[in-house]
């Protein structure tokens, strides 16, 4: 199945499974995405291998970065009329709170989608959406390969 077909299948079912299947690291982190009240929410299931600090315990900052970057890319693929895999140019992650060993959710908002570059802001939260554990803003190259 091509990327285009996978994105179409995901959109048709409201579930990112077909897309996650071709992203091994996303699978390894326990990522999946579903549409809830017209919003694409990316979930990172709690897995013991996602722990960065067992003393607290807290999730590894890298897993939160990967969740935020993935949620932004999924949002772009979801919104796109022509499917091009966005390439990350830069991402800045702000770590706001220590992330507990539970499921984590993320939602990306496209701030600006230009011809070449898209700007996306993303929030990740756990029990309380009003208390995000990490946020990110990122720029992606969204042109077809030249």
């Amino acid at each position: 199945m091509t990327l285009v077909a996978r994105v179409a299948a995901a959109k048709a079912t409201g579930n990112l499974g077909p897309l996650i299947d071709v992203i091994p690291y996303a699978k390894f982190l326990g990522l999946n995405g579903t549409v809830v009240d017209d919003e694409l929410i990316t979930t990172m299931a709690f897995l013991p291998t996602n722990i960065g600090n067992p003393a607290l315990p807290a999730l590894h900052g890298g897993t939160l970065g990967a969740l935020l970057e993935s949620a932004a890319i999924f949002q772009l693929l979801w919104a796109a009329e022509t499917v091009v895999l966005p390439k990350t140019i830069t991402i800045t992650v702000d770590y706001l709170r220590s992330a507990a060993p539970v499921d984590t959710y993320a939602r990306g908002v496209i701030v600006r989608h230009g011809r070449r570059v898209a700007n996306v802001s993303v929030e990740a939260w756990q029990d309380d959406r009003a208390r995000p554990v990490a946020t990110a803003h990122a720029h992606f190259l969204v042109m077809a390969d030249s």
Binding site: P24, Y25, H60, G62, G65, E69
Partner: peptide, 21 residues
């Protein structure tokens, strides 16, 4: 298991984030 795109075989940006962090 760290690949980001099975077509290219390139590692996922998130794994590089974890490494740099």
């Amino acid at each position: 298991h760290l690949i980001g795109n099975v077509e290219t075989g390139v590692l996922h940006g998130g794994a590089i984030t974890a490494l740099l962090d």
